[in-house]
Every structure is written in structure tokens, then in C-alpha cells.
Design a protein around this nucleic acid. Structure first.
Length: 368
RNA sequence: GCGGAAUUGGUGAAGUGGUUAACACGGCGGAUUGUGGUUCCGUUAUGCAUCGGUUCGAUCCCGAUAUUCCGCC
């Protein structure tokens, strides 16, 4: 069955709802950790469950290269392969168009995208049809349309052509898609241009998808521009379908996204910064390598995660200074929990009609 | 006792008679937003064992002293 979205409360800004999937029902707005290679880096499914993680992301491009979609299919699909019984969303490879296609004008064609494998340099060609075929085989809960994540800044002309092409790719992808148990999301592009965002949103909705993403954000633009990109797109999205802001993010952006009516977010930030010794706290981000934590025998934050319940900053600092991987694991647990807990708190605040107060209080503390 | 060699930052070390002493590690700090899994960026010796001398100018040349290593008696 396809996913279902149930909008429970909508005060015109923030939304509270439920996402019903083949692998459980979960409340939105939600944060989804990224597990590119059929794993969330360094963590086991049990650890993800312990931080109340729901949907996780995987990546078409990466799994296409290895181990290959057929192997995952033989294993019985992504869930079985990686031993995760929660919902999985697969990104289409569109972001790799952005990060791996060196010469956009030349490498991106109407038919698809040429780029080189980051593993062995082999030439690859990815099309909407191939992306759908791979995602169908992976058997994730939610598949993403194959799109181009437009760089920032981009000229109006480039953004326009790219946005129109993404739309044609979305249509092709939808036609090629054939897994009844899987849902497919469309992606709004349009770069930083208000009219292109409107055009992209309206046309994508016309094609009809199970949910809609706002793409092309968090690619180097300033926050003000990013929020405008959301505003320019989200007002044209149907209220009875989930809205997913791709690649975002940091705690401030989550608050701003929810305020604008976003239901789903994903981001590599919590796990990436964790591997580099950074931790989210209610008082801002901290770097555990800093000398001032050498003798700090208190937990990272007022937090209910495994790491905060059992370890001190001094110990975590020692692990990072000693180059011990456990530090990255423990911080990944904390950082994911931090964002997921934030979402829980936001949902509660929405339910109790105090979202804006919550947001203000959080920011006041966080920005110190 | 005699002869030889060496002495550069926290460490390993390059280097030159003339503005800012290479590089690496370490230290300190920052970055990171649909992940190209030990990443990227910045900073870190007002000083080249010590004291004299030669020179317009010395870390680099000369002498003495100290320390270390090697060889000989």
C-alpha cells in the first residue's frame, strides 16, 4: 500500500499530522536521519529505535554502485537487507547530479545525467527510468523523483531550463514507476526565483504524487533566501499530502521549516558533525575537541539519550583526541536524538497551541 | 686525554650571508544542511645551544664554552 498522510491540526502555519506507512504510523513533523549506504553511519537499527527515529533515508546512487539493486532485491529488499523494520525513503540520485556532475551544461542532457563513479571513476549514466527501476527494486517505502538539484547561485535562464527538465523527468519517472507498495514523491525546484518556484510547484502537483518535496535548498544560499524558497513553493502544495524539505537541517532551519508547514526533514548534519566531534546542545553547537572540556565531567546536555545518560564531555573529548571511533558513534546517537526530540517538542507545542512560544524560547537559548 | 661530527618550535626535521625560517606531526580554534565515512580551513619558532668576533648585515663564516654521539690511546 501507498503511504497515507493524515492532517490533524493546521493553524495556517505549523502542521501536525500522521504518516501511515507499511512499516508503522508516525507523527509529523518529523526528522529523518540519513543512511546513504543502507545504514545510518555508525549506528545499528536498535540504536535508531532507541532515539525514536522513524523514517530513515537511503540513496539510490550509492546502492546502485554497491552492492547493486539486484543484490538488495535478492536479499528481500532494503528493509531485510539492512535489518531495519521502520520506513525507508530513498533519494533518487538527484543530489549526486548536483555534487558529481562536473560540467553541468555538458553532463546533464534531456535523456539523463553523465557522471563518474566516485569509487573507480567509471562513466555512469543515470536517467529517471533507471532511478525508478533501482528504487522499485530496493523496495523502499518512499521513492523520490529523479531531479536536478540546481546549484546556487544560478542564472534565471539556467534555473528555468533545469526546472522544466526536472518536470519532464518527473513525468517520465512516474510513468516508469511500478511498485504498488511504494510511494513516489515529486520535487519542486525553481532555484531562487519566485515565479519558477510557483511554476514548478503547480506543475508538479498537476502530475500527481503521494507527497511533495521542496528541493534545491541548503546548497549554499543564505538562510533568508532559503526561507523564501520554501515560502514560494509551499503555498501551492496540497494540504492533504506530506511536504518534505530536502537536506535541511540545522535546528534553526527545522523551526523555520515547521513554521512554514513542512512535515518532513532529512539531513546529514547530525551524523556528519558528530564524526567531527560537534554536538548540538540547547545552548548552541559545541566542539568536544575544545580544551575547555578536558576536565568537564558533566554530560553534553540536558538530554535523555544513551550518551548523555552514561558519558561525560571529558570522556568524549578523550575519545576524539585519541581518534577513537566510539566518539563518533556516541555523538551520532546524541545529535540524532537532539533533533528528533526537538520535533517531538514542536509537535507537542503545536498540539497545545504554543508553537511560536516554543520556537522563540528555543532560539533564545540556542543563540545565547 | 686526543681527534671527528652534531646542536633549528612541543616533536621529526628542511634551509639560506640580506624583507615574512619549508614541510610534517602535535597543539589551539573554526567549518560542515537530499553524506565522495579518519574531511576541509585558519593559526601555532620576533627566533636557529651559549658567549664573543668577522661583516653594511649572520641561524648560516670564525673562535671559545656547554651538551650529545663516534673513533683512538
Amino acid at each position: 500500500m501507498k503511504i497515507k498522510y493524515e492532517l490533524i491540526k493546521n493553524d495556517g502555519k505549523a502542521r501536525y499530522g500522521k504518516l501511515i506507512t507499511n512499516h508503522g504510523t508516525f507523527e509529523t513533523p518529523m526528522f529523518m536521519p540519513v543512511g546513504t549506504l543502507a545504514n545510518v553511519k555508525m549506528l545499528t537499527p536498535e540504536e535508531l529505535k532507541a532515539v525514536h527515529s522513524a523514517v530513515i533515508l537511503s540513496n539510490t546512487y550509492h546502492l546502485w554502485l554497491r552492492p547493486g539493486a539486484d543484490i538488495v532485491a535478492k536479499a528481500g529488499g532494503l528493509h531485510k537487507f539492512m535489518n531495519y523494520d521502520g520506513p525507508i525513503l530513498t533519494d533518487s540520485g538527484g543530489f549526486q547530479v548536483f555534487s558529481l556532475a562536473k560540467n553541468k551544461e555538458k553532463d546533464i542532457t534531456e535523456e539523463g545525467v553523465h557522471f563518474k563513479s566516485h569509487i573507480d571513476g567509471k562513466s555512469l549514466f543515470l536517467t529517471p527510468e533507471i532511478s525508478m527501476e533501482i528504487q522499485n527494486k530496493l523496495d523502499s517505502d518512499i521513492a523520490m523523483s529523479f531531479d536536478e538539484c540546481i546549484p546556487y547561485p544560478a542564472t534565471y535562464e539556467y534555473a528555468k531550463q533545469s526546472t522544466e527538465r526536472t518536470l519532464r523527468w518527473a513525468k517520465r519517472g512516474k510513468e516508469a514507476f511500478h511498485n504498488e507498495n511504494q510511494s513516489l514523491f515529486g520535487i519542486v525546484q525553481g532555484g531562487e526565483y519566485t515565479d519558477l518556484r510557483e511554476f514548478s510547484a503547480k506543475e508538479t502537483v498537476k502530475l500527481g504524487f503521494d507527497g511533495y518535496s521542496i528541493g534545491g535548498t541548503s546548497v549554499g544560499e543564505d538562510k533568508k533566501t532559503m526561507y523564501k524558497m520554501i515560502d514560494d513553493a509551499i503555498k501551492y502544495l496540497p494540504i492533504d499530502k506530506p511536504r518534505y524539505l530536502m537536506g535541511v537541517g540545522d535546528p534553526i532551519d527545522l523551526l523555520e521549516g515547521v513554521r512554514r508547514g513542512v512535515d518532513m526533514f532529512d539531513c546529514v548534519l547530525p551524523t556528519r558533525i558528530a564524526r567531527h566531534a560537534n554536538a548540538f546542545t540547547h545552548y548552541g553547537k559545541i566542539n568536544l575537541r575544545n580544551a575547555k572540556y578536558k576536565e568537564d565531567f558533566t554530560p553534553i546536555d540536558d538530554c535523555d539519550c544513551y550518551t548523555c545518560k552514561h558519558y561525560t564531555k571529558a570522556y568524549l573529548r578523550h575519545l576524539f583526541v585519541a581518534n577513537e571511533g566510539l566518539g563518533g558513534r556516541l555523538l551520532s546517537i546524541h545529535n540524532i536524538r537532539f533533533l528528533i526530540r526537538m520535533m517531538e517538542e514542536m509537535r507537542n507545542a503545536i498540539k497545545e497551541d504554543r508553537f511560536l512560544e516554543y520556537k522563540e524560547d528555543f532560539l533564545k537559548k540556542y543563540l545565547g
